[in-house]
Amino acid sequence: MNQYIDWHATQPASGFYNNDKKLATNFVTVGGQYMFNRSWGAMLEVPYWERNYRGAYEGNNDDIHSYDSNSIGDIRIVGMWTGLQEDMSTGFLGGFKVPSGDWHYPKYDRDTQIGTGSTDLLLGVYHMGTIPIVRMEDRPFSYYVQGMYDQPFAYQDHYKNGREFDSGYGTYYDFGKVGYLTELAPILTFLVSDRARDRGTNGDPKDTGYFRVQVAPGLETAFKSLRVYADIELPIFRNMNGYQLSAPFAAKVILSYSF
């Protein structure tokens, strides 16, 4: 993701008011999920970030510096309960994000560090179903909704990152077996995120926090136990506090294998 577009409230803005000029990040996450039975499971996500930051030095827009950093990000440990329905179509999530990511890099402000330095409570829910009134070739369209609430509660070094709620609302159609593929499913998802302002003496409440809506067309395929998902996330609406950097798009690829 390459954030280089200056944004204020709901529209592009002049870079004169923002010392940050570019924030380019590559995200790689290794994760695993294990179901103890049909009702209980656990997930672990270990992210790794590579980040390049370009910014003006002490408010001087003619003096631009560039810095690179890389680190393991904040690890997430989440439990899952899917016992509400026999088909496991509804689930509840609960867990923690731990401060494993680097938040001491001297060239970055706290809101541009790879790690937040906080311990966060994570609460989520998801549901999947079919739309029987919409069918094609005797197969119904399917839908899903999901949400995750992230509430920091243990902070470090006078920086309190804002709470965040991320949700997704999507529909997809599975063509089933196509050639060598055991699944071929185009997916359309709308992503809605709301993040509160940072607080604390090392925070920047004026230029943090946002509400945004994105659309993410994607595709999921499978070959036996191997599954591939890819999408591109495009902004529809953004309302950002103060002056912040925004990206024109974000691309995502997920590879998974079922044992």
Rank of each mutant, 00 (worst) to 15 (best):
P106I: 06
V213N: 07
F259I: 09
L123A: 11
E164K: 14
F16M: 11
I254C: 08
S225T: 04
G179F: 01
L219R: 04
G55R: 03
T119H: 00
Y143Q: 01
S100G: 05
Y257K: 15
F165P: 11
F190D: 11
M136V: 09
N70H: 12
Q3D: 11
L121N: 02
Y159Q: 01
G124F: 09
T201S: 14
H158I: 05
Y126T: 09
D166E: 12
M148H: 05
M88A: 13
R110V: 01
A13E: 04
V134F: 15
Q156K: 13
S39F: 03
G162R: 10
S256N: 12
A24L: 06
I131V: 06
A250V: 12
F259S: 13
L234K: 00
V228A: 05
V78W: 15
V28M: 13
T90A: 10
F27I: 13
S118Y: 03
V215E: 02
M128P: 00
L181N: 01
Q33E: 11
T116W: 05
R197C: 13
P99Q: 04
S193R: 12
Y172S: 12
G73I: 03
V145P: 07
I254F: 09
A216H: 00
E183I: 06
K97E: 06
P47R: 05
N18V: 03
Y180N: 11
F190S: 14
G203L: 02
G203W: 00
R212Q: 13
D207S: 07
Y108P: 00
L226K: 02
Q151C: 10
W40L: 05
V213P: 03
A24K: 05
A250C: 07
Y57E: 14
L122Y: 06
F237P: 14
Y108M: 02
V78E: 13
D150V: 10
T208D: 08
W7V: 06
E183G: 06
Y229E: 01
E58P: 02
Y126F: 15
